[in-house]
Design a protein around this nucleic acid. Structure first.
Lengths: 309, 309
DNA sequence: TGAAATAATGTAACCGGTTACTGTAACCGG
DNA sequence: CCGGTTACAGTAACCGGTTACATTATTTCA
């Protein structure tokens, strides 16, 4: 029997597990990758985490998850970096473009998730198509369902998905001759509770009757929107059409079933992590991947039949 | 200016971040805690993670998340342990009772989540009340809605919540004179996709008409159950009443709104993590915490009115 | 002002592995 | 049976901090 085999056997028998810190220190490798998120207040992260974790585990690495966002960046150091990981996935607005450039110039492997790299730093990135599909989604509300006063609940201010969806929203309005109305844009933060509160506020301050559709920004916010509309006795989709984004698992079973955009979120997590490992192992990975999205038409926009009569 | 202040200043100026591995090695502390999960295929983990992560961040620690379950425990070492963390939260059937006892006797701080400690190891634990509330939930179906052929989709075989909910289910049947029928228990794994497939299989193998209610085990599985029932043209709650467990954020907005048990999952995560830190900092924490649960009655069991007529 | 208390600096060992290098034993083909 | 290759063993330096202790500078106050 080879020595290495015998060694393995004895190590297992004696339940010897090498001390991670000592290995890390000596080998200058942690075998840990990090995932930096703005927050965890969204069911969106479940498929993302699944994609990430599956690849990380398969590679025998560990995964550190941390939240870090723009509001705390001046108080705290980023919890993840070259000092405790071999590389990281960035889905956070806490690291600004110049932070990314600095880390990148240090040779620290990174992959951006749902975020475009800074102009002069070739950091790989994985995201989904937002602008064109959002434009189509809004145009569907306008052309098929005759809606024109479309409320938009945007997401976090620095979040790129939010900005792009807003762009698609504005383009659709523009190309269909509907003036953009600042007053119809609320801050939903892509969170069901925030969206619920914001829409309540809007409706209770005389907003009722001022809108005939809502683009909730994402599916999680759609939950808050539906709850608020229901609480105010506004019928969906008859009085107000509602559309979301992401097609989370619950979307087909909301009341009414949610028309939304199917985003391959687990694939985003998986591909981003594979890119990160390609960077770790081959020191190379190519640029920006934009995964395709598609609209799923259900009841909440006015399409299809109500399932329960 | 004090020396330590000046030091801090220079450290910030020069962007010096101490190398984690070196600190860990020298100080024998990692300032990392681990969270061991069976899997991540469930929206249930979002509130749990939120509770855990909030406390971990507030304490300035890092969080490693890993999946580990009974099916892979013979192939791989647990990814989290004394070698790379200061303590861990265990929500996993991958570590057996004797593993826990071994780790505990090493003095490794652990807190069990949704799991009762082994008889002879005083490991703190945080979970929610399952048995009595499930019994009440099933009795509600029996007594208020007159159901008697109640399908149960149990969760993972070693998962304690699943076992306890099954116990509550059986007690309710027993105390109401309904014989337990093995044929009405399916393996839903607490996963929407598995539950969907299992219920489809059941219905298509002649199960249609053999049940008038479903206890889905948890809310995530409820999504699969509702989808399957809808696909087979079975009306909820008229033909089949459906109840879940957890009261995840989407539950009030399923179609129809889901009657379920409200479980304080974020609090479980928060309290469990606080217990872990109490163990880390004071080397002490007391026993088993069982958080109370309550039934939330909505449309899917037959209570309340349909929101959309 | 001088002795004691306190703060700062200097030094070396150590954490538990990895890495590189040197030396010895086993193996292989001609 | 020998030279050359390969497998294994032994040794020491090193990774980048922490810790403990000894030394020197500064402050405090009788």
């Amino acid at each position: 029997m080879e020595v290495s085999e015998r060694l393995q056997k004895v190590m297992t028998e004696m339940r010897y597990v090498p001390h991670a810190a000592a290995r890390h220190l000596a080998s200058r490798k942690t075998r840990v990758v990090g995932l930096l998120l703005n927050n965890l207040h969204n069911d969106f992260f479940v498929p993302l985490l699944n994609g990430v974790e599956a690849v990380v585990r398969q590679k025998g690495y560990n995964l550190i998850i941390a939240t870090y966002h723009a509001n705390i960046r001046n108080e705290t150091q980023p919890p993840i970096g070259p000092h405790n990981t071999d590389g990281m996935l960035v889905f956070s607005d806490g690291l600004m473009d110049n932070d990314l450039i600095a880390l990148n110039s240090l040779g620290f492997p990174m992959v951006l998730v749902h975020r475009t790299p800074p102009a002069d730093a070739p950091i790989p990135s994985v995201t989904v198509e937002n602008i064109e599909i959002t434009k189509q989604l809004i145009e569907h509300l306008i052309r098929v369902h005759g809606r024109s006063r479309i409320l938009f609940l945007r997401g976090p201010i620095h979040q790129e998905d939010s900005a792009r969806r807003e762009l698609g929203y504005r383009r659709a309005l523009e190309e269909n001759g509907i003036p953009y109305d600042e007053g119809l844009v609320l801050n939903g933060e892509f969170e069901r509770n925030v969206s619920y509160a914001e829409l309540n506020r809007f409706i209770e301050n005389g907003g009722k009757g001022k809108f005939d559709a809502v683009f909730t920004g994402d599916d999680d916010a759609a939950i808050g929107v539906l709850r608020s509309l229901q609480a105010h006795g506004i019928r969906v989709p008859e009085e107000v059409a509602v559309v979301g984004f992401d097609d989370l698992g619950f979307a087909p079973f909301l009341n009414p079933p949610l028309t939304t955009v199917r985003a391959p979120t687990e694939a985003v997590g998986r591909i981003a992590t594979e890119k990160l490992f390609s960077l770790l192992e081959n020191d190379f990975s190519d640029g920006v991947v934009i995964l395709p999205t598609e609209i799923v038409y259900r009841r909440s926009c006015g399409c299809a039949q109500a399932t329960y009569s």
